[in-house]
Write a protein that binds this DNA or RNA. Structure first.
Lengths: 234, 234
DNA sequence: ATCCCTGTTTTGTATGATGAAAAATGCAAA
DNA sequence: TTTGCATTTTTCATCATACAAAACAGGGAT
């Protein structure tokens, strides 16, 4: 009665493969067995084998480029965010989708800078300082400024040590990049943003969570304002 | 990220269907066209049509139960979290997976109670009070206490008005339920948790973000302690 | 050793077939 | 007319087979 086998045949294959990936029988970076091999091993048709691969891919357990052998990817928060990405794309197409996602980012990042202000270690401070310096050195080069901007924010996501946050940062960066990339980039705006970064950093140095949070919120609210001005009502 | 270029024929079908779902040509709850219809319309084979459905399903755009006609599901943060759920399952199987996820919840919920403490409206306060009362009335009935416990926490996720958070709450509840359900439930522990809830609520009434956050962190840290005691090292 | 050519492997797609389950239909009884 | 049931029709899930095209692997020419 506990039989769930009644469902898709592919699910059994998916389960088996999932276990092998988890316990390392199929190592990270290794190609998945060929479809024919899976056929003979599980006694299934290619239809099912292919379906299993598609599902595994959607679960983020394998990286499947067309025409290439699917490659095993050890499950991590990164692959999770990747897999979720295809879904998030739908959200962004919805009314207020971008706004809601961006606001969620603001709240999370606010919490992270709070955490940084209260518990950043020596190395974290150094990382922040370096990222800030690199950012400041790039105000005249908008492309490089963008990169160092992202890198600066990324430091906050690393402070807690919880791998969820760096993965989420990459996810946010990826998801919101389309909006960001279309915005006009001017040294003036870069200078403004750099000043905001500096204000956040200063507040963290002072171990002032409220100040750091306020500075970050101002910074991101201004960024959103720019998005809004550029795109009109999203 | 956006899917690979026109490598797979199924991707084109997926894209077309995605647009139809987004713009409402295929309404929410409506069944997807039969495979045969998609074949003739797009000039593809069943193989491809089928693959397209699997991909759409993994994107959370359709709800595909075996043997049933796939049903269109309007993309929302809920379906996104749903789709992500299968991926998160992998994370939880990894070392520290549960811990990392739970810690991320603590941080987010801390930020949310802060927000509630600073900007909860009249209705929010009423909702919190009601949820708290229901929770208090259920200390002797552990099942009901669990439900009202979840409901109480859920209120915080609703205060900001951003639909990301309620969806995330449901996601957390679903993902962490397996751990939670196996824990021993005793009226004593219920009373303790209820007291913690009350402390959070009181701090919110006082518009004291720091106090509310501290109370919540104590509450969730204690909860994690319980998980730890029950399961040993997760 | 490097590069190119070639045969083999593997994937992407198409087509036809079959059993089973769901949906639609028609008919009889109340 | 409406309800309940049995039968027919669709549709799904899976299998088997086939073929083109792209990737891979090995050998030969430079």
């Amino acid at each position: 009665m506990t039989e769930k086998a009644a469902g898709r045949a592919a699910d059994q294959v998916v389960e088996a493969m999932t276990q092998r990936i988890r316990n390392g029988t199929l190592a990270d970076g290794q190609p998945l067995p060929a479809e024919r091999d899976m056929m003979t091993e599980f006694g299934i048709s290619r239809t099912v084998a292919r379906e299993a691969v598609v599902i595994l891919s959607s679960h983020g357990l394998v990286d499947a480029k067309p025409r290439f052998r699917p490659v095993v990817r050890k499950p991590g928060f990164d692959s999770a965010m990747d897999a979720a990405g295809s879904v998030v794309g739908n959200l962004l197409a919805q009314p207020d989708g971008v706004k809601n996602l961006f606001e969620s980012r603001i709240m999370i990042e606010a919490a992270l800078v709070r955490g940084a202000a209260t518990s950043a270690g020596k190395q974290d401070i150094i990382d922040l300082q370096n990222a800030l310096a690199a950012n400041g050195a790039a105000v005249e080069d908008s492309d490089r400024f963008y990169q160092t901007d992202v890198a600066f924010h990324e430091v906050f996501y690393k402070v807690s040590g919880n791998p969820v946050w760096p993965a989420l940062h990459r996810a946010y960066a990826t998801w919101l990049a389309p909006q960001w990339e279309q915005m006009p980039r001017l040294p003036d705006r870069n200078r403004e943003n750099f000043a905001a970064h500096q204000a956040i950093f200063d507040a963290i140095l002072l171990r002032d969570p409220d100040g750091a949070e306020a500075a970050l919120r101002r910074h991101l609210a201004a960024a959103w304002e720019q998005v809004h001005l550029t795109f009109g009502n999203i």
